[in-house]
Design a protein around this nucleic acid. Sequence first.
DNA 1: GTCTATAGCGCGATAGAC
DNA 2: GTCTATCGCGCTATAGAC
Lengths: 192, 192
Amino acid sequence: MIKGDTKTAILDAAQELIQRSGANAMSYQHISEAIGIRKASIHHHFPTKDALLDALIRRYAAYFLGLVDSIVESKKDPASKLRAYAGLFEATLSEGKQDKACLCGMLGAELSTLGGPAAAGVRRFYRENEARLVRVLEEGKAQGQFHYKGDAKLVAAMIFSLLEGGVLVARAEGGHQRLHAMAEQTLKLLQR
Amino acid sequence: MIKGDTKTAILDAAQELIQRSGANAMSYQHISEAIGIRKASIHHHFPTKDALLDALIRRYAAYFLGLVDSIVESKKDPASKLRAYAGLFEATLSEGKQDKACLCGMLGAELSTLGGPAAAGVRRFYRENEARLVRVLEEGKAQGQFHYKGDAKLVAAMIFSLLEGGVLVARAEGGHQRLHAMAEQTLKLLQR
DNA sequence: GTCTATAGCGCGATAGAC
DNA sequence: GTCTATCGCGCTATAGAC
């Protein structure tokens, strides 16, 4: 193995596999082949698949929400913050050779097949993303840049679902350019 | 079996399983237990899983797009048409005891694991939904009910992704009421 | 911490009787 | 058209040597 930290290499491989094909299509065997280690060694680091998923979701949420926080707390104007936020999803889609979706977007589809801790982690990820979007939307409304009527929480839910769904749909047709165009169109609606 | 038509019963069971848990978590064994028939008998009607998925997607697309067409061609005003369209997704979510998602929304997440015909069917479903939304959006703009700037195709893509993603996210929290509220919020943005 | 080997199960799919 | 029986494989997980 090239990487110093086996645990990290396992998580990296598992994440990539799930972002492409989903958790139910990801196996210890696939990870094994991806990083050149035996299945039993993976079990040494993550005894069960549920434990692996739980650790993976925690790492992903911490990393992704960290990026979101640095956007939300930046000095950009609200519209630019939304653009940057959408850019995170566009980047996911365009990194690597095959289209990858948001880890938690994939797991959302397979939610009923996940263990309790993993499912709870996915729900938390959704909630925390929406909470951050609410902040940006209210800031934008206070500054006169956004002009939506109604509850900021609903607009936030709308934008989050749009991006999570948009990533999945864009993998079928259009890719990251299409997701980008959709995000810009959404901004137009918010700015009147 | 209660149903007269075995083929239909198989498709019904497979569809329900996939809408809850995804295609990779659905098996001939699960269908067998759901309708009280042996695995081998299912293979008699659908020799391979890919063939089953292909037939299922065709049936689902014909049914769903039929409902969409009757909405699009109705005498409702454009905003009411959009409400009725979103209602199709809300109904999917609330029918039965557990939350079901759109069949093709689920398969979109698992797209890379599908056979060629099934994947093509999912793509076609997306395209045809968006084409119908474009008609409603242009009608609404012509009548002065909608006020979006930009390309109707992008707004259509936005709304479709929002609903497909919204169904998946709403299963994690909020259910069909939340999806309904999101759809109403989206309409507010379109109507200014 | 990584390995070989294996248990035990569920999977998709097929053969052949009725 | 449905059944029993079975094949061969991939899966998660464990035991135990090194």
